[in-house]
Simulated assay, not measured.
Amino acid sequence: MSFLQNQQPRVAMVAGETSGDLLAGLLLDGMRQQWPQVQSYGIGGSQMQQRGFDAWWPSERLAVHGYSFEVLMRLWDILSIRKQLRGKLLQERPDVFVGIDAPDFNLGLEQDLRASGIKTVHFVCPSIWAWRPERVHKIRAAADHVLCLFPFEPALLARHDIAATYVGHPLAQVIPMEPDRAAARARLGLSADAPVLALLPGSRRAEVQYIAKPFMQAAALLKQEWPNLQVILPAVPALHDKLIALSHELGVAGWLQIVRGQSHDVLAACDCTLIASGTATLEAALFKRPMVISYHMHPWSYKLMQRKQLQPWVGLPNILCSDFVVPELLQNQASPRALADAVAQWLDGSAHACAKINAVQLRFTALHQELCRDTPTLSAHAIQKVLSA
């Protein structure tokens, strides 16, 4: 009798930040359908905990900003957590370990666990097609199987003898093909008639300093041009108070609406978003929203990332469409004035702007259709095969 016919698996998981927590929560939905009594534990956030996950450490302990400088500042704490976690997992001996993104943390851990005989799955193929292609060797040593969000990734991994399954992007299933803008505005208390700009500066603490401030300053410039512009910012709970304080410091608190969470309602409600590069840009694309993608980090981190970048785009929508479908303003280009001018091109109401918006919506609809799969079920079936091997 096979494992799956007489047992409920014990699944260790690590999700390193807000986007990973969301992905892991959807994966847990699929596993709970497959195994109603599945046990899950490790490092996770609120979405995972709502599904019965036992968080030994919260996800935010692993969330860092940048590539090198910021990581070094917190390296001791992160390495200590990984050492403690490794020891606990080697003692607990889960049936499978699933690392959710966070490759700098998870791949080394997976390699150690796999060497000890614990089966390993990595969910979200590291972006070896965008930067750091040498990481493919570490993936091969670390993961028994990789769950891929994008359709071209399994073939790429197969060339390096890495087993993988395309499971679609879970966000494509969660986000409706035709978002209800009016209903979202009603839920948020926004006017149905006045334009709405969404600010999404990221979910990490350092992003408040590097990104949220110029975003708010850009919104202030736009507010001068469009006094009826509604500006809303969905804040992760851990950053809500810091963002409120920053809004008062910059003198924008009187008209900037900061809400706890609700990022999907905010994206559904807005006409345009000024957004930090990351998973949120894909969410905005799935909501078919025009956007300006931006990012700013410590100069040392940026220089290191530039050296390893393989593609001319950094935003996921542009990478997946292989085109600058929406503008990107990075690092020194991301001044408040430049950001405001880029957003204004989506909001000016001209025939040219309307044509561009329609074209973007068509591109993003096609992307949504391509990424829409039953991710929770496909992922659970792939894990089932790993457990049965």
Rank of each mutant, 00 (worst) to 15 (best):
F53H: 00
S46N: 12
D54W: 11
E60Y: 05
V38T: 07
G52L: 11
G66L: 03
M48G: 02
W76C: 09
F53Q: 01
R61Q: 12
E60S: 11
A63L: 05
V71K: 01
H65A: 14
R51G: 04
A55S: 08
I81A: 05
G52N: 05
S46M: 09
R74E: 14
Y67T: 10
Y67K: 09
G66F: 04
M73A: 13
I43L: 04
H65E: 15
F69Y: 13
G45W: 02
R82F: 10
S59G: 09
R74A: 13
S46D: 15
V38K: 00
V71D: 06
R61V: 15
S68H: 14
Q49Y: 07
W56D: 08
V64C: 05
S59P: 04
I78S: 02
L75G: 03
I43G: 01
A63M: 07
Q47P: 01
G44F: 03
H65Y: 08
S80M: 12
L79N: 11
A55V: 03
L62E: 00
S59C: 11
G44E: 04
E70R: 04
R51E: 06
G42S: 03
G44P: 02
I78H: 02
S80H: 14
L79Y: 12
Y41E: 06
V38C: 07
V64G: 03
A55M: 02
G44C: 04
A63G: 03
G42M: 03
A55N: 02
W76T: 14
Y41R: 05
S80L: 13
A63C: 06
G66W: 01
E70F: 09
L79R: 12
D77P: 02
G42F: 03
Q37G: 11
Q39N: 10
K83Y: 10
V38P: 01
V71I: 10
W57K: 07
Y67E: 06
Q50A: 14
D77W: 07
A63V: 08
H65C: 12
G52C: 08
G52I: 09
I78Q: 01
W56P: 01
M73Y: 08
V64M: 04
H65T: 15
R61G: 02
R74T: 14
M48Y: 02
S40R: 00
R51I: 06
L62R: 01
F53L: 05
Q39D: 13
F53R: 03
L75M: 12
S46Q: 13
F53I: 10
I78Y: 03
I78R: 00
I43M: 01
Q37F: 09
